[in-house]
Design a protein around this nucleic acid. Structure first.
Length: 413
DNA sequence: TGAAAGTCAATATC
DNA sequence: GATATTGACTTTCA
């Protein structure tokens, strides 16, 4: 895999982060201890005893793998969890890199993305839920912050040590902070040359791609070719751009929905919802029309965790425009479950760690999601609205077109 | 098999 | 220096 270089980032590659890993390791050790040589945060296998009364299997005692825990987990309020994690990290001056590598087995960029744009639980695959379960467990651990602080200290110490020794050797080890294997100087010249330079799209190119997207979120191979040649890009770049853009727009819209619906969101109390009913999830109709009134019936209560991802691939746009569809009933926060960790305040959306989030939503369709009016909160909101509008127009257009063609094979979906 | 999901890691920005 | 963004890639899934 390409992840080879990042040494310290143990992570994804690390056997620990995968199937075999037991929850015992969650308190951080697993990942970091491998490559960095740092000692695990805690020798305590419990990684954090769960609180009495917590409906979760006890980490450290259960012997459950993280996958098993994910599978058993009730619906979690991803938004509330990330909010809480951000709060704890900020309050304690802990970085995303350390947190990601130690607790989640993810790189800094992934952590940033995850924290900033969490997807709703019901839209996550089992794998995608894993980091949230880890975060939940971390929040539950009364010593989580302490442990991470220790880790930070150890890292610093190790860094200083390396620095000192390198100074005496006469070369820099700055890159070594991240991990032993990632020292640039340690790569052979040949290896460095193998690296592909990163493509950076210019503003005009992005603009053009966005326009193309608004016209056709799922361009045909021919369109892709044309775009690529017009913009002087590789077709794979154009393809990747569309994939990434679709996927990211979806998440953006979800976040916007959260914030728009019910005042949940950054700065607001009440936690959030695992927005439901969006996209191909359960209630969607695949014909491009919103299944109004579709009420989420999977009140999973944590059990039906099957992945209900969309089955109407080509109709994403609906999803986008209705993302978050339903209502976001605030998760039921369980302040008794031990979340009340450092800096916690139960009122806000508390994460009900492993407590069941209300299978919210009842009134789903309320959300149409394109806030038709109302002052835009900021330029970004405006952009999102425009995107949504464009998406809807596109859907309508495609539907009209489809309807006008008798032969389904001619349909452009 | 193609699209979505998930992630990395380079780079940009704060 | 930490965090955010994003092009590319791998894995998962329908």
């Amino acid at each position: 895999t390409p992840k080879t270089s990042a040494s310290c980032s143990p992570a994804p590659e690390s056997p620990l982060s995968s199937t075999e890993e037991s929850v015992n390791g969650l308190a951080g050790d697993p990942l970091a201890s491998q490559s960095s040589g740092l000692k695990p945060l805690s020798e305590d296998p419990s990684g954090g005893e769960s609180q009495p009364g917590t409906p979760l299997p006890l980490p450290g005692h259960s012997g459950l793998s993280i996958q098993e825990m994910v599978a058993m987990s009730p619906e979690l309020d991803t938004y509330a969890i990330t909010k809480k994690v951000k709060e704890v990290l900020t309050d304690n001056n802990l970085g995303q890199r350390l947190f990601g590598e130690t607790i989640l087995g993810l790189t800094q960029g992934s952590v940033s993305d995850l924290l900033a744009r969490p997807k709703p639980w019901h839209k996550l695959s089992l794998k995608g839920r894993e980091p949230f379960v880890r975060m939940q467990l971390w929040l539950q651990d009364p010593h989580s912050v302490e442990k991470l602080m220790d880790m930070k200290r150890l890292e610093k110490k190790a860094y200083m040590k390396r620095r000192l020794s390198s100074l005496s050797d006469g070369h820099s080890v700055d890159a070594g902070l991240v991990g032993p294997d990632y020292v640039q100087g340690s790569q052979s010249p040949g290896q460095q040359q193998l690296k592909k330079p990163r493509v950076v799209l210019g503003p005009e190119e992005k603009e053009a791609l966005k326009k193309a997207y608004q016209q056709k979120p799922y361009p045909s191979p021919k369109t892709i070719e044309e775009l690529a040649s017009q913009l002087n890009l590789k077709t794979s770049t154009v393809i990747n751009w569309f994939h990434n853009y679709r996927s990211r727009i979806r998440r953006e819209l979800f976040i916007e929905e959260i914030q728009a619906a019910g005042g949940v969101g950054p700065g607001s109390e009440g936690g959030s919802p695992s927005l439901r009913g969006s996209k191909s999830g359960e209630g969607d109709s695949c014909d491009g029309t919103e299944s109004e009134g579709t009420v989420e019936t999977r009140q999973g209560l944590g059990i039906g965790l099957e992945d209900h991802r969309g089955s109407c691939k080509d109709h994403d746009m609906e999803a986008e425009s209705e993302a978050g569809g339903s209502n976001n009933s605030p998760a039921q926060l369980d302040c008794t479950s031990g979340l009340a960790g450092p800096g916690s305040s139960c009122g806000q959306g508390g994460l009900g760690l492993f407590s069941l989030t209300e299978a919210s939503s009842s009134s789903s369709a309320s959300s149409t999601n394109i806030p038709a009016s109302g002052p835009a909160r900021n330029p970004r909101d405006n952009n999102l609205r425009k995107k949504k509008a464009a998406n809807l127009n596109n859907i309508i257009h495609r539907l009209e077109k489809a309807a006008s063609k008798e032969d389904p094979s001619e349909w452009e979906f």
